[in-house]
C-alpha cells in the first residue's frame, strides 16, 4: 500500500469503517511510514475530540407540544379523529 492509497482511505480508517484486512494493510504501511502515521494519528485525535462533543439533545416537552399544535394548524387538510382530538403527545418511554 502506498502513501497515496492511505490518503484515500484515511477517513474510513479513522472512523473504523474498513474491513479488518484493509485496516491491517494500512497499519502495516503506518509502521514503515512516519508521515502517514502522523497524519493518521492526528486526524484520529481530531475525530475523537469531535465525537466527545456528541451528546443527545432532547427537545423539551413544551416545545414538542407547541410545534405539533403549530403543525396541525398549518396543515388544515389533516383529518381529526372521531373524538376531535387535538395533538396527542405522549412522553416517550422512560430512558
Amino acid at each position: 500500500m502506498t502513501c497515496e492509497d492511505i490518503s484515500g482511505l484515511i477517513n474510513s480508517y479513522v472512523e473504523n469503517d474498513l474491513s479488518e484486512e484493509t485496516a491491517l494493510r494500512i497499519e502495516a504501511h503506518l509502521l514503515t511510514c512516519r508521515d502517514c502515521a502522523w497524519e493518521t494519528e492526528t486526524l484520529r485525535i481530531v475525530h475523537r475530540r469531535l465525537l466527545s462533543e456528541r451528546h443527545e439533545t432532547i427537545a423539551s416537552d413544551a416545545f414538542r407540544a407547541r410545534v405539533l399544535i403549530r403543525l396541525r394548524t398549518d396543515n388544515e387538510h389533516l383529518k381529526t379523529t372521531e373524538e376531535g382530538e387535538r395533538v396527542r403527545y405522549q412522553l416517550p418511554m422512560p430512558f
Binding site: 439533545t57 427537545a59 414538542r64 410545534v67 405539533l68
Partner: peptide, 23 residues
C-alpha cells in the same frame, strides 16, 4: 399518508426527527 390527511403520520415523522433536528 400525511398528504392524504393522516395526522398520525405527521406526528410519527416529527417524533422520529425532532431531537436530531434540535441537536
Amino acid at each position: 399518508r400525511f398528504r392524504e390527511g393522516d395526522a398520525r403520520a405527521l406526528e410519527i415523522l416529527f417524533e422520529r426527527h425532532v431531537d436530531r433536528a434540535m441537536g
